[in-house]
Amino acid sequence: MNEIEIHNLYKSYGPTKALDNLSLSVEKNGFYGLIGPDGAGKSSLMRIITSLLLPDSGSVIVGGLDPVKDYKKLRLKLGYMPGKFSLYQDLSVEENLKFFARVFGTTIEENYHLIKPVYSQIEPFKNRRAGKLSGGMKQKLALSCALVHKPEILILDEPTTGVDAVSRREFWDMLAEIRKSGITILVSTPYMEEAVLCDKISLMFDGKVVDSGSPDDITSGFKNNLFIIKSANVPLLLNVLRGMEGLKSVNSFGQTIHVVADSSETGKPEIEEFLQKNNVSGCSVEQSPAGIEDCFIDHILTNTTT
């Protein structure tokens, strides 16, 4: 039995469809990522799972319970960290944690082993007001608070948004550590590069899941040939390549350009030839396996054109 099982879920806010026939399943003790930009429906989905929102239609089972009918029992099983930093800024680190422990009928001491990997990092500042913590420390406190009652399922809505790279990496390491205690984790992020840190992911766009599976499954599902072109002048090269035929898409990736071929007829020689014809020199063209972001772009392009 899967820990989270969702079938044909719909949710609208007036005329806007937030979730559009969405299905996904998270296995017990899974480490599952929802990857998608703002407005893809990640938060709505998480709020339905946590029983904070009612679905319009579809079936949702979380921890064997129905979030609509059994919300009271379900809420005891859940640890939830909303997208916005939601702790009491005027309370100290320790007071926040104590409060949430008490509300769930437990104490810090009882579950200290569970929160230790996270809380030990901010414990030296336990008398500081939460409002005075840095972004990374706030996230750690919020995570401690979500964990302190020993939830079975941990739902984290964009925990790493707005946090610097170091804290972000520490945060993901902590999640991997927490998972060892048997907790199921569902986490969302708009950042494609964080996808590979999860076991399984769903790529979300416009209220739909456009692809699901392990990160490897998803990248190996990318069937077209992809070429990476390095250039000193990306803007110029972008304009040139957009004029080439036989290409499905041309996208900038920082100082490189990713080019997706329409068919096997377009290969490295054809691209190099085209660049030469257009008097572009000093670039290297390499065929490469696709990354998550390539897959995402590909899905959006096929989704919006059809």
Binding site: L52, R75, Y80, P82, F85, S86, V103, G105, C145
Partner: peptide, 13 residues
């Protein structure tokens, strides 16, 4: 406003 109500609601309170 601060979003803490979300956490209170999913708690057993």
């Amino acid at each position: 406003e601060t979003g803490t109500m979300e956490i209170l609601l999913v708690s057993p309170l």
